[in-house]
Amino acid sequence: MSVQPGWYVDPAEPTTRRWWDGEGWVGRPIPLDVTPPEGPPPEEEPTPEPAPTTGAPPQHAPGQPPAGGPSNIQPPAGWSPAPGQPPAGGWRPVPGQQPGGWPPAAGPGHPQGPPPGWPYPTWPGRPPLPRPHGFPLASYGARLVARLIDFGILFLLSLAVNGWFIWRYVQEVSPYLSEALRRAVAGDTSREGLPTVGQQADGLLLAILLITTALWFAYEVPAMAAGGQTVGKRLARVRAVPVEADQPLGFGRAARRWSTLGLPTLLWYCLCFGLVLQFVDAVSALFDHPLRQALHDKRARTVVVRLPRAEPTPAAPTDRADPPGDTP
């Protein structure tokens, strides 16, 4: 699956960031600590080509190696031929050296890349994980811990608000469940004579689901809109940020992100179909590469990153020659 266009860390130089247009790197890199502009980089004026001089090497068609065979091909600085491959088709980075020798962007619409006739180099191993806005991606374990903490808080809130409705619902269904359980233990599979479920059971269940969904919305959406973190995410040191820029989600994006995972709660009424949808959404991040986006992340165009540990503020040094006190 192709990566959406945006500013990402340049795999060739992790201290810089470049614009990915969905097919290749475009424009010049910018330092990693500089906030990238919104959208692609501005187009650059094409540099006029110098007039050919006498004795210049013959031109060759783009995408074809220079004339004269592999013996005339010199690798760019920092590149060596792959073992078992001819130089014309197997240059790859030399460990510990910075690739070089590639020209900058030739003009608008021409991404920076190898010279004509040189194959684009590949990583000798697995490519590095992206670092959106300079932060590493949150691990699946950290995201799971954050979600479990939030569900625990939401469960306690739901018990406090839905307590009376839950008690009434149990009173409506307990005669049927008790008799069905007694017959199952005794090996009786007949259904005749079972008590009927109370008439108010369906209405009570719907009220419980509506209140739980509203509590979830009120708990998660405002917090995510303001800072990209709930209580669970703060404790797990993860945060949701937009793919485009390191900024707050805003109410609209936070509501779209929550609705994909939270609204199916109302469908628990339909044979727990909503629970199946939520499970699929939760595990979808395990199969998404390279940004580890769940379905609710894809809809809101967000990504979950891991925050660094807060370093303790060093104490101010005390001057023994000038103890604290009033200045004379």
Rank of each mutant, 00 (worst) to 15 (best):
P11W: 05
A12C: 07
T15A: 14
W19T: 01
D21L: 04
E23V: 12
W25V: 06
P31M: 13
L32A: 15
G39C: 14
P42M: 13
E43S: 14
E45Q: 10
T47S: 14
T47D: 14
A51P: 04
T53M: 11
G55E: 09
A67F: 07
G69C: 04
N72A: 15
N72M: 14
P76L: 04
S80P: 06
P86L: 13
P87I: 12
G90L: 08
P95F: 02
Q97Y: 03
Q98S: 14
A106R: 05
A106G: 11
P108D: 06
P108K: 00
W118A: 06
W118I: 07
R126K: 14
P136H: 02
Y140C: 11
A146I: 05
L148V: 15
G152F: 13
I153A: 00
L154C: 12
V161K: 07
I166W: 05
R168L: 15
Q171S: 10
Q171F: 08
Q171G: 10
Q171Y: 02
V173C: 03
P175I: 01
P175T: 05
S178G: 12
E179S: 02
S190Y: 02
R191C: 06
L194P: 03
P195D: 03
P195N: 06
V197D: 01
Q200K: 09
A201L: 04
D202W: 09
D202T: 06
L204E: 00
I208K: 02
L209T: 00
T212P: 03
T213Q: 01
Y219T: 02
Q229W: 06
Q229A: 07
K233Y: 08
R234P: 00
R234E: 07
R239V: 09
V241Y: 04
P242S: 10
E244T: 07
P248S: 03
P248T: 00
L249C: 05
T260C: 13
P264H: 03
C270W: 14
L271V: 15
L271A: 14
V276I: 15
D281W: 00
V283P: 04
Q293F: 07
L295G: 07
L295A: 09
V303P: 00
V305F: 07
A316S: 09
D326S: 11
